[in-house]
Design a protein around this nucleic acid. Structure first.
Lengths: 204, 204
DNA sequence: GATCCTGTCTACCAGATGGTAGACAGGATC
DNA sequence: GATCCTGTCTACCATCTGGTAGACAGGATC
């Protein structure tokens, strides 16, 4: 069967399906059979494109990291001057893909339960961006344009807030949030206000 | 073999082991065999105490919920008057068990990937406390003692921040945080300051 | 002493899992 | 036309999975 425009490359379709399944249900809980079924192919075809499940996981992680890094990098380089505006830009940039595809950040979270080797690989990909963020925060804190605190931990806390809220629909249901277009915008704005308040310098 | 003081009831030991494994690696990724091995018993003994894996999961969820609710409830009822101090009390109360046993909050997170029935059961256990928290936040916002915002979403965001930071050691490693006693206290204090800033009323 | 109850065990089982071996179809290359 | 390459498939396999059936040992009850 030849590849046609409506039948994109199998490899990429496997990657996509794996990303969604791994991200929403966890790597260990998803079988190759399931991924294959999702793609409409046999398990052995999955194993043809990726030597093993581990290889597939690696490839998926790489794709997620690069996708997110592109978005974040663009937002960081945005023209904003005030650091609060810049953070805002990052949040808006991440929020859209994250909500549209919960698996994205879900997979990022999944990292903490991955074998050390795989977690290390991903961390080394992300590390430069993290370092740049932390340095930037430190600089702006010194200038008095952000609340003075440990820049590394502030970065981690802000990250935890964003990924937490995006990956835990259950907690939102508990506070009776509705998953509509209006609700989404409302959530995004509340998230922005929350972070802005958490990061703003103490007015004295 | 009789039960002795050094050999606590098997049932409880199974619950403990299951809590840790489920919480750190995910329910689907942990087998009954593994839990049994951890306890030092055969899988069939696990199935003697809990009719099925589902039953075990339910029991573990119930234990987690009640453990956390006790802690949170006590902190909410604390003598503090200022709402920021009260939040502080809750954070301090949750932080200790959460960091000592990452699986606790890890399991709470796991809820979002559980079958709907189980997720619902847990939510109904937690709902009253959540409602009370949200009402309290709304009241204090009206009094002008908290930043005015959507009380439900603020509660969800604060929750996301706390559980996020407690369940994602990987993100902390990325910002080069060290998991020592000093580091822990530092982290706790930064978390408190972060939330305090996020919740404090706008000074005008 | 016979009987029952409790807690743990061994022995299975059917189905799923990750993975191997190799057939085969269709196109490209010679 | 023979050969090779690519992508998918069927047929297996060993291992692990949740779960059932039932043996058995030790204590309590009669």
């Amino acid at each position: 069967m030849p590849d046609t425009p409506t039948r994109p490359r199998t490899r990429q379709r496997i990657l996509d399906a794996a990303l969604d399944l791994f991200g929403t249900r966890g790597v260990d809980a998803v079988s190759l059979d399931e991924i294959a079924r999702d793609v409409g192919v046999r398990k052995q075809t999955v194993l043809y494109w990726f030597d093993s499940k581990d290889t597939l996981v690696d490839a998926v992680l790489e794709q997620v990291a690069s996708e997110l890094l592109v978005v974040i990098d663009a937002a960081i380089r945005s023209a904003e001057d005030d650091p609060l505006d810049r953070v805002d830009a990052v949040v808006r940039a991440v929020f859209r893909p994250a909500v549209r595809r919960p698996a994205l950040l879900g997979l990022v979270r999944e990292v903490s339960r991955l074998p050390a080797a795989q977690a290390d690989r991903l961390r080394s990909m992300v590390q430069p961006v993290v370092d740049r963020c932390v340095d930037y925060l430190a600089l702006e804190m010194e200038k008095g344009r952000l609340r003075r605190a440990d820049p590394g931990l502030v970065a981690a806390l802000a990250y935890a807030t964003v990924t937490g809220i995006a990956t835990e629909p259950e907690s939102l249901r508990a506070v009776r949030w509705e998953a509509s277009a209006v609700g989404l915008r409302h959530l995004r704005d509340e998230l922005r206000a929350f972070l802005r308040a958490a990061l703003a310098p103490e007015r004295s």
